[in-house]
Computed example of a mutant assay.
Amino acid sequence: MGGAAPLLPSWRAAAAAWVALCLVPVVLSLAVLWLPLLCCAVAVFRFRRVRMMRSSAATGGRRRCGGGGGGRWPEKGEGEDSGGDRGMLLQKYLEDQMELVGEFAADPPPVES
């Protein structure tokens, strides 16, 4: 009782297929034209990110700190962040780390079987 499907598609479907077929070369050529520009943009973005990370590492990450210090860092011997204080803090940090390593070596964690 169901009618048989027509062998030829309707004129709208045929028109849509022809439009899609005609747009394939246009879309393909646009993709080929834009691909090098996209690659250059990605390369520039990565280069800038690596350069920013290197400069941040060279300054000790100070560029990314959010404090409002007015953009001026204290000179040596100025304020609480002088070179002598840094040396003492580093020495204390290293001593604490060595204590932790010594405690770990003397009392290893139990191994569960």
Rank of each mutant, 00 (worst) to 15 (best):
W18I: 11
Y93D: 01
A13K: 03
V26Q: 01
F45W: 13
G67F: 15
E75Q: 13
G66F: 14
P74R: 00
R48F: 14
G87W: 03
G71K: 05
E78A: 15
G69Q: 09
S56E: 15
C65A: 11
L33H: 07
G66W: 11
F47H: 15
E75T: 04
A20C: 07
V42G: 02
G66K: 10
G77W: 08
A14M: 10
A4N: 01
D81L: 15
A13R: 03
S55G: 08
A105Q: 01
M52G: 01
A17I: 09
K92S: 08
L35Q: 05
V32K: 01
G71W: 04
G77P: 03
A14P: 07
R46D: 04
F45S: 09
G77V: 08
W73F: 10
G87V: 11
V111Q: 12
V111W: 09
G66V: 13
G77R: 00
K92I: 07
L90V: 02
E99M: 06
L89M: 11
L100Y: 04
S55Q: 14
G102R: 07
E80Y: 14
S82V: 09
A106H: 07
R62Q: 06
S82Q: 05
A4R: 08
R49N: 09
L33F: 11
M88G: 04
D96S: 10
R49Y: 01
F47V: 15
A43E: 07
C39S: 10
G2K: 00
G67D: 11
R72F: 03
P74W: 11
A57Q: 11
F45N: 12
A43G: 00
V111A: 06
V27N: 07
E112C: 06
P36D: 00
R54C: 14
L89I: 10
W34D: 04
D107T: 13
W18F: 08
E75M: 11
F47N: 01
L94N: 00
G71M: 13
D85T: 14
G87I: 08
A57E: 11
V19C: 00
S56T: 12
F47Y: 05
P6F: 08
